[in-house]
């Protein structure tokens, strides 16, 4: 009986897993395709959300502190502040970690046949930009301002109006793509 329940539970989980895996983006490998490099987007994308996370967490801890301060005398206000603080704390916490988990899986993949940019959010957004070397005529690396020059990140732009932003070392990556295309 116990074994039957376990097997049913496992069956349900495996079916659920299969359903989600079917929904996920699966880039298809071309014949004779070889991986040349995989790189992450630049870390600058984490700066503003991290700042926001610290500020909102600080605010929620302050609300909890005020709740404790009001606790003995004005219980209603204390409870309201406590629930507000806890809600803000949990919302901020989960938003930040969902952002981190999703962004850590954003990759720029270069193979001997194409460039693939995968960018996903947990559950609701799946984005894959793919540029084949057959369609690509030129590749350009842009650093728009002094900030991007100092931190060494920028945008890769391909001929059929495709842009990949927040690329670390865009110049080096553009050279690597040109090599793969046989342009140099």
């Amino acid at each position: 009986m116990h074994e039957q329940q376990t097997s049913n539970g496992t069956f349900f989980l495996s079916k659920l897993d299969q359903y989600w895996v079917k929904r996920a983006i699966k880039p298809v490998v071309m014949p004779n395709e070889r991986l040349l490099s995989v790189s992450h987007e630049h870390w600058i994308k984490y700066v503003f959300p991290s700042f926001l996370y610290v500020a909102l967490t600080g605010t929620s801890l302050l609300l909890l502190y005020f709740a404790a301060l009001f606790a003995p005398s004005v219980l209603g206000v204390a409870l309201f502040l406590f629930i507000l603080g806890v809600t803000l704390l949990f919302v901020t916490h989960h938003w930040f970690f969902w952002f981190l988990l999703a962004e850590s899986q954003a990759h720029i993949i270069i193979t001997n046949k194409r460039v693939i940019h995968i960018h996903e959010s947990l559950l609701w957004r799946e984005e894959m930009v793919e540029v084949s070397f057959e369609k690509m005529k030129t590749v350009e690396a842009h650093k728009r301002n002094i900030f991007q020059s100092v931190l060494n990140y920028g945008t890769l732009q391909f001929e059929p109006m495709v842009k990949i932003r927040l690329v670390s070392h865009p110049g080096a990556l553009a050279r690597q793509i040109e090599q793969a295309m046989g342009m140099i």
Binding site: W20, I25, K26, V29, R34, L35, T111
Partner: peptide, 22 residues
Amino acid sequence: LSYRIILQSHHGFHISLHHAGK
């Protein structure tokens, strides 16, 4: 769960490419 599915999907692609690649 969602993160694990993204990882599995990427890992499958990686394995398909990795046999002859860097």
